[in-house]
Structures are given as structure tokens and as C-alpha cells.
Design a protein around this nucleic acid. Structure first.
Lengths: 337, 337
DNA sequence: CTGAAAGCGCTTACAG
DNA sequence: CTGAAAGCGCTTACAG
């Protein structure tokens, strides 16, 4: 049984509105000793305002929801994204509701998650990848809540990292070091747009340098677990192997490093390598050049955009792309003569 | 401007309570055509009940909060834990509020996060490691919310994986394969109790087998990034090196595998290895024996316990430990003759 | 079978 | 300077 203003009013012999005003510091007109008494009672009882009552009065829940898919690889919750969202939310004294939407059940009309069935938050942050199930999109639309898509490419109300530019930059660094045979490696089965974007960035940098981009090192459907180092070895064993590799992510980078090592190739000296990740990548005690996915910045900005959208219900916002940062390692050196 | 029952009542010429009963299926006594009309209006307007109003009436928010630290390594949010919590919450039609508590600011009396300042959820799940700042503990107590600690060792209202038994089991497997020189490796700087527990489990298994446990392979304050493979190499280069290694986690396992590889040791044949992780571990295309941290089960049970605690405010619950599962790999073989 | 009232916890606008 | 009333969105218990 939580403590209410009613109880405080009772205990201190004051009216309920008086308690409200005193607790909210809007009671300059009340006698100082009354105020003190009420505050003392509130403290002693351990009073905490009821958020639901406040929400009703203010017409605002002070809470936004982050929607995730339950499909692994479809959507995740990187630590940096969460901390960025949280930091910005915190600054505005808002709180975060987390909701995972199970794709399978979304087609079941009887099933609607509480967050979309009731009205409990002010807006939606949706961290969901390319293939949005139509049932889900409909549910979200039906909620009529302001929303910002994270990591999804559309022409408005979305925010995403600038994978194209990051791919370009990664390739440019290799080119500047003097490499000409530069490969782009992908082993995961992910079909996220970032694969295409990073590769496209790489291709454009190659073309800018007057070189033909190599086809992506990959296999349809991804390389199965248990064959990835082997696949990397075979790519690196070819006589005309690339002198520099750009890994789609840490998974690829790790397997390349492993493979290079078993082939007696030293990363840096014999093979340059760079990767994309949300933190600087260290493999075999060596720092790898890393294009840093700006998770934290995306989280922060996503909240700002959503707040903007909530304040301005009918003005949508142009797509925002956030540049990658870069962590320099020792894995990129000029090619051997 | 969200749609309210008032609007529906207006539009369909019925009283507000009537709308409420109809929408909640408690209006058998009302004329069928009235019901149909009201339902139609509600649908057409896109009505969704206001969660705050429901919370006030029901005296229950239908929401629990998950508290995390902002200190890296102190507390995190593993995917399995989240999915377990979510699954169970979902079954009960409850929602989840996420709150990260920044340690630094907890000492500032003017700063109290909304979740602890207002009354907005029914209970607390606290995923916070050993060293709880006293200021935080006080804030949590002051909230008087029912709570369950996750991953914290205390004598009641907490749930944690059975690290001791997992350490024991890992060692027993090595012993059964015929190993006698078995090492326990820790490289991270973490001081989490699980380090001590897993090692203690290992020690007890060694003693049960009449063997003296080896001192933990580690270094005070952890091995710095960039020296970890090298440290592993030196451990494995000693003439009386262990024939089997038990890694505290994936980080250690990876570096051991790397190191073994550069030393020409084949994991499985020349060196047995097992690890602890929340998913089966694959390194160098090889599956490693893994004691699986039961994140999902812990998440589910944590919610059950908390609900129990909410229903029964003044009866605390004995500490619960959850056994690890096991994923067999090919990394544990009898030692070379 | 239907409507008006009272209440949940809170705040604001208005009488005295 | 103080109190009683009205309202936010909803539901339940009670008159007619």
C-alpha cells in the first residue's frame, strides 16, 4: 500500500490540494510551519508521487518505448545504443520501456503486445532491420504513436549510420597506404543493408582510384560456423590474393586473423586488415583499424528526433545519417614490394 | 490527442460507463445493437485504453523495472537474460522498464532517477554485481518496492547461476578424460564472484580426485589488452604446462586458442580446453566444450520470483541457484601419452 | 436493461 | 492565506 497525498493530508491536518502545492514548491502563500510539517510527514512516510496519476494529468507518460525484434540478427540491443538512448532520456527525465515483438505471433490477430494495445508511452524508437513484417508495420501504424526507425532505411523519420561513407573511408585508407588488390569479406548470413552499403562504399573508392572493385568474398547464405577459418584460408591462399582485406565485421576479422596466422602471414606486414565494429578491435594482441559504428551517437540523436516528433506531431523529419568514427590500429601498412 | 472513452460515448450517444463495459465485454445486459455500434465507433476511431488510468484503478502498473549499472563490466544485459525476462513478462502481459543507474551521480542527493523518485512500476529486477554502492542500496530500499537481485549473492530475494557447480563439472570432465595437470585461467580484470566460484568448484573437483589444484593462471588487476595472447603463450610454454585448461570465459578461451595455435599445439589433441559462456563457443572452426550460463532460465525465473514477491509483499524468498547447461565440443580429449 | 454517482491519485482554477 | 470543487481517463457498485 503505497503512500498517497491523501494520507499525508490526513496525518498533517491539511487539505489534499495544499499537500500537492507544498510538495511541488508552489505554496509560497502557505504558512512556513505548515509547509515544514507537511514536508516532514511526507518524508517520514516515504511519499513518492504516483506516476500514473501524473501521466493522466499531464497528458504525457514521460516514457518512450524501444521496440526490438526477437529474431536473432534481425535486431539487437548494442550496449552503446542503449547507453546513448539512456543518456539522452535521462537528461530529459524520461524513462524507457523495452518491448520485444515476436515476429511469429504478430500475424495472430488476437495477439497484440501491451505496448501497442494500450496507450502507455509517448513515442516509439524502433530498432528493427530491413525486413519488417507487414503485420508489424500495421500494428505500429495503428498505434498512431510518433516514431523513429533506427537502422532502417526510409526517407523520413529514421536514423542510421553512414555505412556507405565508412566503407569508402576504409578502402581509401588502404589505397593511400599503397594497396591495389583490396578485398571485401563477408561471412555472416546477415542480409542487412549495411553489407551492401559498406561494399558499395568500398567499390566507389576503388573506382575513384581507377581500380576495378573485387567481387565480395562471400558465399550465398553465409559461411557456416565451423568452416569460416577454412574459407578465409582458401581466400588467402590464392596466388593473387588481396594484400589488404576489409572485413564486414568482427566475426570476419577474427577469422581472417586466425587464417592468416595459420598461413604464416603476419597481419600488418603481410596482410593489411580493417574492420567495422562498435568498439576498437584487438586480435592476437594487435589493434585492428576499426571504423566505429556510432551506436552511442545514434541512440542520443534518435531520442532527440523522437522528442522533436512528439512535440510536432504532424511534421515528419528527414532521414539522418551519422558518420562513423575511426580507431587506428597497426593493421594497415604499405604492401610488401 | 488520443481517443478516449468520453469521445466514443459522445459519438455513439451512450454513457461513459456503458462504453467501458462494452469494450471490456461486461455488457451482456446491454442491447446487442448498442454494443455493436459502440464497438464500431471504437474501432473506427482507433481507441486504445489509457494505461495510466488503468494503473490507477487497478493499483498495479503492470510493469516491472530492470535496473542496470552504467559501469562497464559491473552489469550488462546479455541477450539471453533479456529474452528470458521478456518471455515470462509477456506471458503475464506485463511490460518492462529499463533503467541504468549512473553510479557517479548516485551520491548526489538532488539526483534520483525517475524510476526511484516516482512510483511507476510494481517491482525491481536488479542486475548489478558484487559491489553495490551504498547510496544505491539506500535509494532502492527507500523505494520500498519488491525486488529480486540477479547475479548477486545474498541470502534471500536473489537468483544466480550455480558457478561453483559449473566449475566443478568442468574440472570433472577433464579428470574423467584422464587429465591431471589442469589449469584455471582468468585474464579479465573482473572481480565478480563468479571468478571465485568457478575456481572454487574446480579446486573441489581436483581435491576430490586427490590432486592439488593449481593456482589460478592470472595476474593482479587482470592482463592488459594487447598482452593477453602473449601471457597465454608463456603459460603454455612451460615444460610442466597443464594438459587441460579451463577458461573463465570466452575472452580467455580465445586467447588460449590463439596462443596454442602459434605454438603449434592443436586444441583437443595437444591441449584440452573448456570454457563458460552464454552460447556454445566456436574458435578456429572448432567447437569448444562450454558450460552454458543459463541466462534465459535466470531471466524467466527472476520474473516469477518477483511476481511472487509482489503478490506476497512481506515474505522473502530464499536464494535460488540455477544449474548451467553443457554444450559438448571436440576440445576435450585424453592427454597425450 | 439503463443511467448517474463515486472513486483511484493527482493538479489547477476558483471561491471565500 | 485557506478550502472546496472540478477535472484527467477509467471502472465499479448502486439506484432506477
Amino acid at each position: 500500500m503505497p503512500v498517497t497525498m491523501k494520507m499525508i493530508a490526513h496525518q498533517s491536518g491539511v487539505s489534499r490540494p495544499a499537500v500537492s502545492m507544498i510538495l511541488n514548491g508552489k505554496a509560497d502563500h502557505l504558512r512556513a510551519d505548515t509547509r515544514k510539517r507537511v514536508l516532514a510527514v511526507a518524508r517520514q512516510l516515504g511519499y513518492r508521487p504516483n506516476g500514473a496519476a501524473l501521466a493522466i494529468k499531464q497528458g504525457r507518460f514521460g516514457s518512450i518505448a524501444l521496440l526490438l525484434s526477437t529474431q536473432p540478427f534481425r535486431s539487437e540491443l548494442p550496449a552503446g545504443l542503449l547507453s546513448g538512448i539512456d543518456e539522452e532520456l535521462h537528461r530529459r527525465d524520461l524513462s524507457l520501456t523495452l518491448a520485444r515483438l515476436p515476429d511469429e505471433r504478430l500475424t495472430d490477430p488476437n495477439f497484440v503486445p501491451r505496448i501497442l494495445r494500450e496507450y502507455v508511452c509517448d513515442g516509439l524508437l524502433i530498432n528493427y532491420f530491413d525486413k519488417i513484417p507487414p503485420a508489424m508495420e500495421q500494428l505500429i501504424e495503428a498505434s498512431r504513436l510518433p516514431k523513429i526507425w533506427i537502422n532502417r532505411q526510409c526517407d523520413h523519420d529514421c536514423i542510421l549510420p553512414d555505412d556507405m561513407k565508412a566503407g569508402h573511408d576504409a578502402a581509401v585508407r588502404m589505397l593511400q597506404a599503397g594497396h591495389r588488390r583490396i578485398g571485401f569479406v563477408k561471412q555472416t548470413s546477415s542480409t542487412h543493408y549495411s553489407v551492401a552499403h559498406r561494399y558499395a562504399g568500398y567499390c566507389s573508392a576503388m573506382r575513384d582510384a581507377g581500380l576495378a572493385p573485387l567481387p565480395m568474398f562471400e558465399r550465398d547464405g553465409g559461411i557456416p560456423i565451423g568452416e569460416r577459418v577454412q574459407a578465409s584460408r582458401s581466400w588467402l591462399s590464392s596466388p593473387d590474393r588481396p594484400t589488404a582485406m576489409i572485413a564486414y565485421g568482427n566475426l570476419e576479422a577474427t577469422n581472417i586473423v586466425f587464417a592468416a596466422n595459420t598461413l604464416g602471414l603476419s597481419v600488418g606486414r603481410d596482410l593489411s586488415l580493417s574492420t567495422f565494429a562498435d568498439h576498437p578491435c584487438n586480435l592476437l594482441d594487435q589493434w585492428i583499424d576499426t571504423q566505429l559504428v556510432p551506436e552511442h551517437a545514434i541512440g542520443k540523436q534518435a531520442v532527440s528526433l523522437l522528442e522533436q516528433r512528439i512535440a510536432n506531431r504532424d511534421q515528419c523529419i528527414e532521414a539522418v545519417t551519422v558518420p562513423f568514427a575511426f580507431a587506428e590500429g597497426q593493421s594497415c601498412k604499405p604492401p610488401q614490394a
